[in-house]
Amino acid sequence: MKLGMNQGTTLENSSLERDLHLLEKYGYDYIEIRSIDKLKEYLQTHTINDLIEFFQTHHVKPLSLNALVYFNNRTEEEYKALLEEYKEMLEYAKVLNIDRIVVVPLVSEKKIVRSVIKKSCVEVLTELSDLAKPYGVKLALEFIGHPHATVNTLSFANEIVAEVNRENVGIVFDTFQFYAMNSTLEDLKNTDFSKVFLFHINDVEDFNPGIMLDEDRVYPGDGVIDLHNILTIIKEKRFTEHASIELFRPEYYQLDAEEVVRTAKEKTFKVLEQFFSVEEKK
């Protein structure tokens, strides 16, 4: 199993340029690029060709673009702007040879009935799928484990993806999002892993479901998520492609990014090597 890192892990104490060099130094295989901010910052002082050249001449490769945010249940004007952003992401994906874009459902305190949420998600994902097909890009729906998220459980995400029924539409399986709203191991067993396009690994402090936030994430193995049984199921499902670390902890942002990158790899390897063959790269 290969190892990646989502840039949320070093969001406030690093840059795309530094992340790339740190991940290369510590033998990571992949980076998930934050197109919503870190890529834009990078392009203020670099060209896209600089980034292309880096990936051509180094081991670390791009795994995904993150993210098209709040894609469903939008106004006509909001959706028009969203499509423009998405089309730009597709062009970046093309030149950077990235085949996965994360799409994040709406988070809102407004109450919306599930049927309306599902209808919007299916319609939008179908259109986005059509636009992505010529680029060879897959869309990974990331359910968000929070009460205000319109898609906040694994089972609902699976239901939506099954309704869309497109080869290039699947999900992100994130251990924090899974735990945060009481998705179950049975839900995971019932998941079609050919539709798991991204696997995010992390852990969390011992808070009650429904109140956890991204900031509560900790290194894998340092929290209360049942990673043992989750990884047992993932192994049984024969998913061995990658695990990508995604943390948003303010405490870690106070550290030097190199310490976070190094520690994240060490702790994640300790968890993964109990189940998968992980090649240690220096």
Results as ranks from 00 to 15, higher is better:
Tyr219Asn: 01
Glu85Asn: 11
Phe239Gly: 06
Glu163Thr: 13
Asp256Ile: 10
Thr47Gly: 09
His59Ser: 10
Val95Thr: 06
Asp203Arg: 08
Gly170Leu: 04
Pro62Cys: 02
Val271Ser: 01
Glu246Lys: 11
Leu63Arg: 03
Ser155Asn: 08
Ile160Gly: 01
Pro105Asp: 01
Pro220Met: 03
Asn165Leu: 04
Ile201Ser: 04
Glu159Pro: 02
Asn208Thr: 10
Arg114Asp: 13
Gln56Cys: 02
Lys133Leu: 13
Gly223Tyr: 02
Gly27Ser: 05
Arg217Val: 03
Val102Tyr: 00
Ser120Leu: 06
Leu90Glu: 01
Ile33Met: 00
Gln7Tyr: 07
Met5His: 05
Glu78Cys: 12
Ala162Val: 12
Lys282Arg: 14
Asn190Lys: 11
Phe207Leu: 15
Ala93Ser: 13
Glu159Ser: 07
Asn202Gln: 13
Val122Ser: 09
Ile245Leu: 15
Thr175Gln: 14
Lys281Gly: 05
His58Ser: 10
Lys94Glu: 08
Val204Gly: 00
Leu3Thr: 06
Lys235Cys: 07
Val224His: 01
Arg100Gln: 10
Gln44Trp: 11
Asn6Met: 11
Lys87Cys: 08
Gly145Phe: 10
Thr45Gln: 11
Asn97Arg: 11
Val95Asn: 04
Thr175Cys: 10
Lys119Ile: 05
Leu82Ile: 11
Leu272Arg: 06
Asp19Ser: 15
Ser277Leu: 11
Ile112Ser: 13
Tyr42Trp: 02
Leu82Gln: 14
Ser244Met: 07
Ser35Phe: 12
Leu227Ile: 04
Thr10Cys: 07
Thr45Asn: 15
Lys40Glu: 09
Glu251Ile: 10
His21Pro: 05
Glu259Gln: 12
Arg238Val: 09
Pro209Gln: 08
Val172Ile: 12
Val95Met: 05
Arg262Lys: 15
Leu231Ala: 13
Thr232Ser: 14
Ser244Asp: 09
Phe197Glu: 00
Val103Tyr: 00
Glu142Ile: 08
Phe239Leu: 05
Leu272Pro: 03
Lys2Ser: 14
Phe248Cys: 08
Arg249Lys: 12
Lys119Leu: 09
Lys281Ala: 03
Arg217Met: 03
Val218Asp: 04
Asp256Thr: 11
Leu131His: 07
Gln274Glu: 15
Met181Glu: 05
Asp192Gln: 06
Thr191Asp: 02
Leu198Tyr: 01
Asn208Trp: 10
Glu85Gln: 11
Arg18Ser: 14
Gly4Lys: 01
His21Gly: 06
Glu186Ile: 08
Met212Glu: 06
Leu63Gly: 03
Ser194Asn: 14
Asp222Cys: 03
